[in-house]
Design a binder for these strands. Structure first.
Length: 212
DNA sequence: TGCCAGGCCCTCTTTAGGGCCTT
């Protein structure tokens, strides 16, 4: 059992590019330990950015909702205190890490936490999956649907469920005794081709589907 | 009002192009 604490994060935003002015509208972080959620943080935030209609249609988050929310800098400072030095995880982490760094930088806070990515891990551990979207994987593995998709807390909790499922697969199918954050970072860094050899070294042979 | 990016991965590749994934 992996008892290491990890912080699974999800942002809702006004778009896909913080470098071009997009801002976060909501953040949620769940702390997991041994595959169990032990604490939660969630808040809308007012970054003063306009939310396009199609984003509101996707997330349900309106301009009025964020205008009534605390300032982004205040929320991010609370989020940073909540996370501390806990290693982080996100679904498509390159996206959430960019917003984590961008919003913390605006708040005058340095971001140093390493990010593991459940998309990269899923591609390596479940190469047979036809889709690696969060919702598709949750459905495929019959994981709990923790609320409305495309809201930060629900997506963070579903990503945490997926993380626990990946860790369990590594333990049960591949004999990885301790799939902690450092192991996951190592696994996502090596090429997909190298993963077969790496995991095979932990014990049980991979399935045919995984060796394709 | 509503445009946009970036990293990873595959292949009809590597002097490239396109799909996936996130909002």
């Amino acid at each position: 059992m992996v008892n290491q604490r990890m912080a699974v994060i999800d942002f809702e935003t006004t778009g896909i590019s913080p470098g071009l002015g997009d801002r976060a509208t909501e953040v949620a972080i769940v702390l997991t330990e041994g595959g169990v959620v032990v604490d939660r943080f969630q808040s809308l935030m007012n970054a003063g950015a306009y939310i396009p209609a199609f984003i509101t249609q996707l997330t349900g988050i309106t301009n009025a909702m964020v205008q009534a929310a605390p300032p982004a800098e205040t929320v991010m400072a609370e989020a940073a205190r909540f996370v501390g030095q806990t290693p982080m995880v996100a679904h498509n982490a390159s996206f959430d890490r960019r917003y984590w760094v961008a919003e913390l930088t605006r708040a005058g806070i340095e971001a140093q936490q390493p990010f593991a990515c459940t998309v990269l891990l899923s591609r390596r551990v479940y190469p047979e999956a036809p889709s690696h979207k969060l919702g598709s994987l949750v459905s495929r593995f019959r994981l709990p649907q923790t609320g409305a998709a495309h809201r930060a807390l629900a997506d963070a909790e579903m990503a945490a469920e997926l993380l626990a499922h990946i860790q369990n697969t590594l333990r049960m199918r591949h004999g990885v005794g301790n799939p902690d954050h450092a192991f996951l970072m190592g696994l996502q860094r090596i090429s997909k081709a190298a993963v077969v050899k790496r995991l095979a070294g932990f014990g049980e042979a991979l399935t045919g589907a995984e060796q394709r």
